[in-house]
Design a protein around this nucleic acid. Structure first.
Lengths: 95, 95
DNA sequence: TAAAGTAGTTTATATTATAAACCAAATGAA
DNA sequence: TTCATTTGGTTTATAATATAAACTACTTTA
């Protein structure tokens, strides 16, 4: 089959954007990701949970002074999955 | 915003595969597309309808001898949309 | 003539994406 | 002080989607 299946967890606009951000930085916090992606907080919260449950990212929640702070970091599993997704979707993009 | 919105009509594995096939051929029939994509007939039928309704492809149904034959062809609108989608998703893929 | 194959379409269902509503604490203005 | 607003999220509800299963209609083959 010329078309490899695309990882459904990554074939989602917002989750792909989150992974794309995280792959090029050490870590990023919730607010920054929200700004960069333009997502609503609710949507972002849900999608971060999914990426976290899959082990694609790790999430740390702490308090900075008096404000909560959620920090995300891509895992090796996540890097592998992202690279695999990129490889697979390329087949669809250049015919 | 670094991430452009992805055309939801094209951000679907099967519809993207169909468009990817059609962009490099004059036309293709239902059975061929089904084989190449590995899709079920029902799913393919639905997705072809959606691409057709959006004007991304044109669909001709005729009889070849006694068998029905559905032939699909990408339109200029479809070519433009596909190229735009490719341009936009590239932003997500190379960070 | 009954079973199986071809070329699809329609319908039902399970999953998804997304927004709306909500919560708790902190800050700001009157 | 007290009431509204902002911050940083989470939870819940809903609308949209993808997909498979069931079905139709006709043809071929045993």
């Amino acid at each position: 089959m010329p078309f490899e299946a695309l990882d459904p967890l990554l074939h989602s606009q917002l989750r792909l954007a989150v992974m794309s951000l995280l792959i090029s930085v050490e870590s990023a916090d919730f607010v920054y990701i929200k700004e960069q992606t333009g997502a609503t907080a609710g949507n972002l919260s849900v999608q971060i949970d999914k990426l976290s449950s899959a082990g694609y990212i790790s999430v740390e929640k702490k308090f900075e002074g008096k404000k909560p702070k959620t920090t995300c970091k891509i895992t090796q599993t996540g890097v592998d999955a992202f690279e695999n997704y990129v490889k697979n979707i390329q087949q669809y993009l250049k015919p």
